[in-house]
Design a protein around this nucleic acid. Structure first.
Lengths: 233, 233
DNA sequence: TGATATATTTGAACTTAAGTCAAATATTAA
DNA sequence: TTAATATTTGACTTAAGTTCAAATATATCA
């Protein structure tokens, strides 16, 4: 049962890390704390995880597993239009993000890392240890899986007529995904809007969802005559 | 000329920091390097900047100044529809981001910090030094200024008929802003799509812009009959 | 001008936290 | 029982951010 024992110890460290990262954030958590809280020596945490980033990547993987679960849950339910699936995805992601802020931060953070991943010029800027993490490749795969499921939702919507047929599924899904990611980046469970910006989250969220739906299903064109203008593009 | 000399030294350090952050990234740059490259002692950099985060916030402020310049540049040109302004904004922001990746990273990073700013529960997770930075308040203001300019663009578009009249300017602008931020988060100048995801950046970008425009100006509704379904929301 | 106050600058010392590793202990296999 | 292998320890190393008393330069004023 050596393998199982290893997994158990590994899981113990991971669970402790999740708790600490949740309470004190990534930067605010030390490896000493992780070890002490887990009741083991610091060296052992480095036996199970290459380094702190590797541990964080393991946490991020758990976050993405849950996220992928959300995608799957939605696509499983048959008898739902593609548009409805994407609407549900948006709401469920927002719920997920507000209930599990640390997981959401990990996901958003990973997006920022991934962005640089295949870029030869900037790869050097990223901490090389992240790229070495065994979890990193798996994360790329899971993210890709989420993408495939999302694209399926759009395709589904085009077939059932809830999404306008001229849209390209890939481009459309990733645009929606960008919207959601961007929204999360700009707000958060409590958000900045109360003090900083006039609109309320309660107002923005439904407006945001409405705009996304309009984009997908189409709307009546504005009637006022448009002025022709010079453009930079 | 004590004040001016101070500003000059301060600018020297800032310029060095910008160069180093650009070449080696934030984490990859040490305060020793900054001091050495600027030809001064380490202690002096701490005389002019409270700490490394404060220095980074000063860099971020420069990034936001440029960004605000983009917003202003667009709104200055009269004889342009609101829709066109927002289209230009999108393209110009993408250009800005690809030409000045480090600035863009700083901006995106700030978004993530700002998000937490007014949240009493999670403020503790953020490094408290960031909040103490004198530049931080200014950054919030500049971001707010950008928001106001963006909202103006939408209002303008509603007036000139290029944007459908039923849209709310605030909600609409921040949704577009979220799209742009999210897009940047997911891609980057070179991007991840080449290896990881099937769609090309060359394909996504125009599709993304088109979707945004459709969302703003409206489209013909899809004709196929829609199925009524159960929804979670 | 010389003396005093104020501002700028230094560099060595401090601190914290990530990461390493040789040795010790426990487990498994033969 | 013994040898081999796996797990675990904790003291040590290293890196980098940060502090601060002392030194130097600059400005003020009698």
């Amino acid at each position: 049962m050596a393998g199982s024992a290893r997994e158990k110890k590994s899981k113990l460290i991971l669970d402790v890390a999740i708790k600490l990262f949740t309470n004190k954030g990534y930067a605010g958590t030390t490896m000493d704390e992780v070890a002490k809280t887990a009741g083991i020596s610091k060296g052992l945490t480095y036996f199970y995880f290459k380094n702190k980033e590797d541990l964080y990547m393991a946490v991020t993987k758990k976050a993405f597993d849950e996220l992928k679960g959300v995608f799957r849950e939605i696509i499983k339910m048959k008898g739902k239009s593609g548009l409805q699936m994407l609407t549900d995805l948006t709401h469920l992601y927002f719920d997920f993000a507000s209930k599990n802020r640390m997981y959401n931060d990990a996901i958003l953070n990973f997006m920022g890392i991934m962005q640089l991943y295949t870029d030869n010029l900037t790869k050097s800027q990223i901490h090389p240890l992240i790229l070495e993490s065994d979890h990193f490749q798996k994360l790329l795969e899971i993210h890709h899986d989420c993408g495939r499921l999302g694209i399926q939702m759009v395709s589904h919507g085009i077939k059932d007529g809830s999404i306008r047929p001229e849209l390209q599924p890939e481009v459309t899904f990733y645009t929606i995904w960008a919207m959601i990611i961007g929204y999360e980046r700009l707000t958060g469970p409590v958000g900045f809007e109360e003090k900083e910006i006039k609109i309320h989250l309660d107002n923005w969220k439904p407006g945001f969802v409405k705009l996304m739906q309009d984009m997908l299903k189409g709307t009546i064109q504005a009637q006022k005559p448009q002025v022709v203008q010079a453009s930079l593009f």
